[in-house]
Nucleic acid binder design. Structure first.
Lengths: 217, 217
DNA sequence: GCGATAATTGTACACTTGTTCAATAGCTGA
DNA sequence: TCAGCTATTGAACAAGTGTACAATTATCGC
């Protein structure tokens, strides 16, 4: 991964370089963890001088906030897009959300490690925590209308907002468990656990028709 | 908090010193986070020479493993004890477990921060992850018989193991949310969310008698 | 082609880190 | 009381950290 800085780097547009640094930061944070992460290590990974990072991001924390915003925005946007996609039943969109939530793209060592690192760093850096809040709220907000639709589909009358809370925190808990401990066995897997909750909460209680189960996990 | 090391420290039994170092480690890890934590900072906090820590714990990681084991054992033992306490209904013990899970003792900045730090460090240190697994399994195992009793109390026939999974991950998710982000508002609070799930899963579906709600949160 | 702009570098600095090791001194038991 | 064990110290080390700053040089508009 480390690139030897034998010759001077090609000159690049600031935006391009910024993105490169951000991506390397996420990868490095994920691999080394926040306790070993360092600006210098990032610079070594992409073969640039440490001072170039300081030049692009005024300080240490600015880079972290930028990297986390980038990650969170990509995650949140995907989640939000799926929840509004047209031509699908609410349950189908919920299943897609679940798949997206636990997709390798987010659970790979590269990203999960970075997320956990950010939780950690967020404890001491207020700006990180603000970004964190913002995305959590967004995800939670997307969930309520989707579950409301689903309740209508199932013809059940229930406290959707309460169930959205529960579902959201269940997703968080499952994600954390898998992210922190990728090797641990969980039967069924996180997707199955999430779907089982939906079946339990919406399908089994209301109507009599059998649920359209998805045999994943 | 830092103690000036003007005079040489009183000589202490190794066990006593070990405990002191472990507690200082947890406190330091919680306050500074894993990225700023350092053996030297711990030594400064309790006013001993850094080399004394090396003398008591051969290496860096040994201290971390010891500290995490200590924390996890205390947490797990309390949880386990409550779940077996005699003379109480299953629901009363469940409520106590919930209270214990979200007690200030574990959610205070001092402990929650340390836990998050350990999750982080566990990603690169296998021994930490093993300890982590062990305690997670224990908690989950305590939960199943307790929920089985509760199902009997409520006279509902359901897949208790599946519900135990869900409940366990819900607790994890709630705990994480509060621990990472203590200022965030959550209505109802984590205790209320957990109790609401129990009501929803066990009480509302089976019998007709109204649930004995606990108005906390 | 040339010159100005700014992306990139190298060096330097003051600091912190974990660990080693010989020296020191508090405690225990005879 | 005093020797011996060992808990404790301080100095030292090599390595790593973030940032500052002046010097370079690639690139683009002219």
């Amino acid at each position: 991964m480390t690139v030897e800085a034998t010759t001077r780097q090609r000159r690049r547009a600031p935006e391009e370089r910024r993105r490169q640094i951000i991506e390397a930061t996420i990868a490095c944070l994920a691999q080394s963890g926040p306790e070993k992460w360092s600006l210098r290590q990032v610079s070594r990974d992409i073969g640039i001088a440490p001072s170039l990072i300081t030049y692009m991001f005024a300080t240490w924390n600015d880079l972290l906030v930028a990297a986390y915003s980038d990650l969170g925005e990509r995650f949140g946007a995907q989640f939000s897009e799926i929840s509004r996609r047209e031509g699908l039943t609410a349950r189908a969109r919920l299943d897609l959300c679940i798949d997206a939530y636990f997709a390798d793209e987010w659970l790979s060592a590269d990203v999960a490690g970075a997320y956990i690192a950010f939780w950690t760093l967020g404890r001491s850096e207020r700006r990180l925590r603000d970004v964190m809040d913002q995305f959590a709220e967004m995800k939670q907000r997307d969930l309520i209308p989707l579950l409301r639709e689903y309740a209508a589909e199932c013809r059940v009358d229930c406290d959707v907002e309460a169930l959205a809370d529960t579902f959201y925190f269940l997703l968080s808990g499952l994600w954390y468990e898998v992210a922190v401990n990728p090797d641990a066995v969980m039967r069924p897997g996180p997707r199955g656990q999430a779907r089982r909750f939906l079946d339990f909460a919406f399908v089994e209680r209301g109507a009599s028709h059998s649920p359209h189960r998805n045999p994943l996990d």
